[in-house]
């Protein structure tokens, strides 16, 4: 339609990508400062730069999305390229929103990298000109169903990133609780040690005391390594698990809405609410995985790491549903693709 506007939108996306790269570098610098032994409570200039460029990137991306919508004369989420713009925007925006309430800068590297890589894939492989849509997509359900799907994807993605951080942290916490290779003990302040031990006591197995004894009989000075200092600076894994859970709970509601709205749309468009089209099947599977995750979380006393694995499997399914199903499976949703 209006190809000038479309080009402006694409340029803005390049701008957002550049911002995310700068942010990623800044966050990485911040993290490596920890790694080489900077105190945790120092002024984190690099992280500040990272946050500022994230805000810039998100702003550019938001404008890019709006302009894209103007160029196409419709809502800007009707193909895989635009879907990527939306869900990466949500990942970044939710990250920025969380940061106003609590310190989640430890996610900065991951968030900026995910946003950059997904956008990279979008502009190189998935790009299509801004244009109208075919009659099958002309429906207000496009507005409702797909926008919430992008939000759900963003929520699941951010939660998955937190789960990864949680798993990394939990490994060292467990090691710390066993007293052995605990990298924390050497450099840690007393609060850090307290956090670590309290966080992991639940995981102490029957053999824990024995290990601890064995370690003390062969005393060796555990060394704080680059990686261990970074990991040490992460919040306790239990806190991250709770945060991931909250995002996943909201994400699950969003998935439920996507599913229901999709069924209503399918009823209008194809004359049946549910037909086990590959896309429908995968969405169902995602929904069931997250339902199982919530059940396990609410009703079992599992170790928190299991929940993280669950959430990661859920997000893998989300990614498969988007990248693999859209491109390689033929179904009624195929037109939404390239």
């Amino acid at each position: 339609m209006n190809s000038d506007l479309g080009d402006i939108s694409t340029l803005l996306i390049y701008g957002a990508m550049a911002s995310y790269v700068v942010a990623m570098i800044a966050f990485a610098v911040d993290v490596s400062a920890l790694g080489i032994g900077a105190p945790r409570d120092r002024r984190r200039r690099a992280a500040g730069i990272g946050m500022a460029t994230m805000w810039l990137g998100a702003g550019l991306q938001l404008v890019a999305i709006v302009v894209r919508g103007l160029a196409a004369g419709r809502v800007p989420w009707a193909n895989m390229y635009e879907f990527t713009l939306m869900f990466t925007f949500f990942v970044v925006a939710i990250f920025l929103g969380l940061q106003t309430r609590r310190d989640v800068r430890y996610l900065g590297v991951g968030v900026s990298m995910l946003a950059f890589l997904a956008l990279m894939l979008a502009v190189t492989v998935l790009y299509v000109e801004a244009d109208g849509v075919q009659p099958a997509l002309r429906s207000y359900w496009l507005v409702i169903h797909v926008s919430v799907a992008t939000l759900a994807t963003g929520l699941s993605g951010l939660a998955a990133m937190i789960s990864v951080a949680q798993l990394v942290k939990a490994r060292t916490e467990r090691a710390g609780a066993r007293g052995g290779r605990a990298p924390v003990t050497a450099a840690a302040t007393s609060t850090a040690t307290a956090e670590v031990t309290s966080g992991a006591t639940a995981d102490l197995g029957p053999g824990a005391t024995a290990t601890a004894v064995a370690e003390t009989t062969t005393p060796k000075q555990p060394r704080a390594t680059f990686g261990s200092r970074i990991i040490e600076a992460l919040p306790p894994s239990a806190n991250m698990e709770r945060l991931a859970y909250r995002l996943n709970a909201v994400g699950f509601v969003a998935w439920t809405f996507t599913l229901v709205a999709g069924a209503i749309w399918a009823e209008h468009a194809w004359g049946r609410p549910w037909g086990w089209d590959p896309k429908e099947t995968w969405t169902f599977v995602i929904w069931v995985i997250y339902a199982a995750y919530l059940h396990a979380r609410v009703t079992t006393g599992w170790a928190a790491e299991k929940f993280a694995y669950f959430a990661l499997v859920g997000f893998m399914a989300v990614l498969a549903n988007f990248y693999i199903v859209n491109i390689f499976f033929s179904g009624k949703h195929s037109y939404a693709g390239l």
Binding site: T281, W282, V285, V288, A292, H295, T299, F329, G331
Partner: peptide
């Protein structure tokens, strides 16, 4: 029991998947 319910829920995800890989008569 919750344990079995959870198992069945996961199983439901697993048994639903083949339909995405093999063509279905109904579709």
């Amino acid at each position: 029991s919750m344990r079995v319910a959870l198992l069945l829920l996961l199983l439901l995800a697993v048994v639903a998947l083949p339909g995405a890989f093999f063509p279905q008569r109904s579709v």
